[in-house]
Every structure is written in structure tokens, then in C-alpha cells.
Design a binder for these strands. Structure first.
Length: 284
DNA sequence: CACCATGTTCCTTG
DNA sequence: CCAAGGAACATGGT
């Protein structure tokens, strides 16, 4: 569930549900996910606090909270890792097997579950300071992006995963953006021409924006249920989902390119899969 | 049993 | 100090 579009769709879902809700109890079932920091201080900070807002930055969720009886606000940082989900569930339901944190909010519980526990729900905001520009705002421009790319001889695909260059792109949308821009994932970052960087910048914006639009219109079941497709929420088995409908190259090794028909290839870069069309994405 | 998986950080090496 | 590569984290699916 965890690249920028999926996090954005989740943020839009939770945004209207949280403000005004007060944290009545705090259960840290996996201390690892609130680190650095210990369950005691975490509990004390959150208990009685009221949600006031929610924003997204890269793949992070920023929960705004206010301490009881004061105007003092603070931020709780959420990250879904590879397999995390955050949602509201009825209080009477037993927490899922891999519930990492459960916040009681009146009639509902805020659940953070994560089978692999790679994600975070923490008061430590350091990671956000290291993020590069937001790709869907004017902060992300071809000029500075080109300068950053020029400093590296690594493959451009690998650089797209560097959150300090541009925030929010993950393994799926890195492949998708390069396909859209018709650039080989193996091209060394510093070898991209100005025209290619411009295309890539635009492709990143388009690919992410389209994914958000698509996820916003899908009938997602945020309450849980079996995960389906990219958006890790319940969906009707057999029904079309974003994952199969919208991705052009990711996880399509051997299948025909939607643009030219050539077989999509899978290669490994920096120990992660990359998918591309060798015909459309030449190394030039 | 084997290998794969939407992410990030830490450690080592050069 | 920096870039780059790899392991580690932990669990589930195929």
C-alpha cells in the first residue's frame, strides 16, 4: 500500500474522520514501530490528545494533535512500510493479528497493523526533514532535479528511489515513470539529457497524479477485509482493481508492451526488481 | 524448501 | 565527507 499515491488516497480518506476525536487509550503492541522512543513516553504524549488535522509528505502521514486544554500542538508521524495499514474500526472488534498500535477514540479504534512491522507510528519527525521536494507541487522542478541527477553515476531507476531527490516514489512508480518517459532504467543518472530530465519530471507527475485519481474513484473498503491490488484495502474478488488495470510495466515481465508489443523485461537493480520495455526504453 | 514482496536504515568498503 | 553496495528488519504468498 505504500507509495505516494496510496498514502495520499489513505490521507484523503482519514482526513475527515479524525478531527475532533480524542485518544482515550494507547496500546503499543509492538514497541519497535514507535521507535526511537519508548512506549511510556509515547503513551503519555498521546493520551487525551485530540486530532486536529492530517497531511501527507512523501510516503509519510502527519497527524496533527492538540494536547488537552491547551493550544499546544504536536505531530505524530506515520509510515506504512511495505505492508502497513491504518484505519478506523469498531471498538468491539478484536484487534488484528499484527496490530502494532491501537488507539481508542470513543466508539472507534484507530488501528495500525503491519505484518512485517517495517512501518512507523512515532513522535520522531527526523525522517521528514531529509525528504526531497513533493513531486506534485512546484517545489519539484526539472532544473534542480537535473542538478541532483548529475551528481550520480548510479542507474536512474535507483536514484528515483532516493527520497532525498524527490519524495514519494517507490519501486512500482519508478518503473512506471521511466516507461512513461521512455527512458531506460539502466541509464546512468548523470547521462540524462536536459530533455530527458524534463520528460521524466513530467512523467513522474503524471503517473502519480493518475494513480491518485484512480485510487480516489475506486470503491475501496478501508475498514479492512482482504487486501486487493495496490491499495491495501478490501475489494471484491474478480472486480477490476488499480493494480491490474493501470500499471503498464510493473510485474508484467513477459507480457506484451502496451505501446509496442515487445515483451516486458524484468531486471534486478540494487537488489530490487525493475520492469521496462527494451524497445521503448532505449539507453540514449 | 526456494524465492519473491509496495521500504528504510545501518554498516562496510572504496 | 561522500557514493555505492549489501545486509538487516519480519512475515506471508506462491
Amino acid at each position: 500500500m505504500p507509495e505516494l499515491p496510496e498514502v495520499e488516497v489513505l490521507a484523503r480518506h482519514l482526513q475527515p474522520l479524525l478531527p475532533g476525536k480524542i485518544i482515550r487509550s494507547v496500546q503499543v503492541r509492538r514497541p519497535k514501530v514507535i521507535q526511537p522512543g519508548n512506549p511510556e513516553t509515547f503513551r503519555r504524549a498521546l493520551l487525551g490528545a485530540k486530532f486536529t488535522g492530517l497531511t501527507r509528505r512523501g510516503k509519510y502521514l502527519l497527524f496533527q494533535l492538540r494536547r488537552p486544554g491547551t493550544r499546544e500542538t504536536f505531530t505524530l508521524l506515520g509510515h506504512l512500510g511495505m505492508t502497513g495499514r491504518m484505519y478506523l474500526a469498531a471498538k468491539n472488534l478484536p484487534p488484528p493479528k499484527h496490530a502494532a498500535v491501537v488507539l481508542e477514540l470513543g466508539r472507534q479504534n484507530f488501528i495500525y497493523e503491519d505484518p512485517r512491522y517495517f512501518g512507523r507510528l512515532t513522535l520522531n519527525l527526523d525522517p521528514v526533514a531529509k525528504l526531497g521536494p513533493e513531486p506534485l507541487t512546484d517545489d519539484f522542478a526539472a532544473g534542480p532535479f537535473a542538478v541532483a541527477l548529475r551528481r550520480s553515476g548510479q542507474a536512474v531507476k535507483v536514484k528515483l528511489l532516493d527520497q532525498s531527490l524527490v519524495a514519494g516514489i517507490g519501486n512500482i512508480y519508478a518503473s512506471e515513470a521511466l516507461f512513461r518517459a521512455r527512458i531506460s532504467p539502466r541509464l546512468a543518472a548523470r547521462r540524462l539529457t536536459a530533455a530527458q530530465v524534463k520528460r521524466l519530471t513530467a512523467a513522474i507527475r503524471t503517473v502519480l497524479a493518475e494513480a491518485i485519481d484512480c485510487g480516489s474513484t475506486l470503491p475501496l473498503n478501508f475498514g479492512g477485509g482482504p487486501a486487493g491490488g495496490l491499495f491495501y484495502f478490501g475489494h471484491t474478488p474478480g472486480a477490476p482493481d488499480f493494480y491490474t488495470e493501470r500499471l503498464c510495466v510493473y510485474d508484467r515481465a513477459g507480457q506484451p508492451c502496451l505501446r509496442c508489443g515487445h515483451a516486458i523485461r524484468r531486471i534486478v537493480q540494487a537488489a530490487r526488481s525493475t520492469f521496462f520495455c527494451p524497445q521503448c526504453q532505449r539507453k540514449m
